[in-house]
């Protein structure tokens, strides 16, 4: 059995603990640093597009997501965090991401 298997969600080996440096997580720091500035939103969407949809996101969808994100406030850390999550949500909702070709 693999020790410290991070995919073990069911607690079958609950006596094991996963060291911090082996835990799987999503690093939001770059996404957050881009999400607070309306002028950088297109870079943010580009980056998510490259990471998840191989840069195939259509211009229309790209612009739609950028314009939508501007409607969401970016007044404090919570706002910015939520903006970043919505950016990811919308890119991951696109057929370009979901259909691998």
């Amino acid at each position: 059995m693999i020790r410290n298997d991070p995919t073990d969600e069911k607690g079958l080996y609950s006596n094991e603990s996963i060291p911090d440096n082996e835990k799987a997580f999503y690093d939001l720091s770059i996404t957050l640093s881009l999400a607070d500035d309306n002028d950088e939103l297109h870079i943010l969407v580009d980056r998510l597009d490259m990471l998840s949809a191989h840069g195939l996101l259509s211009d229309a969808s790209h612009n739609l997501i950028v314009e939508t994100l501007k409607e969401f406030p970016a007044d404090d850390a919570d706002d910015i965090d939520e903006r970043a999550r919505i950016a990811i949500y919308l890119v991951l909702s696109s057929p370009e991401y979901l259909i691998n070709r």
Binding site: L64, E71, L90, P95, R101
Partner: peptide, 27 residues
């Protein structure tokens, strides 16, 4: 209002014309 915006935009993305049959069907 923001929930509405989010869902509406997700739908708009799906409503676009997609050349790929899988993408079209998914949409």
């Amino acid at each position: 209002f923001l929930n509405q915006t989010k869902d509406q935009v997700a739908q708009n993305i799906l409503e676009a014309e997609y050349g790929n049959l899988f993408q079209k069907t998914y949409g």
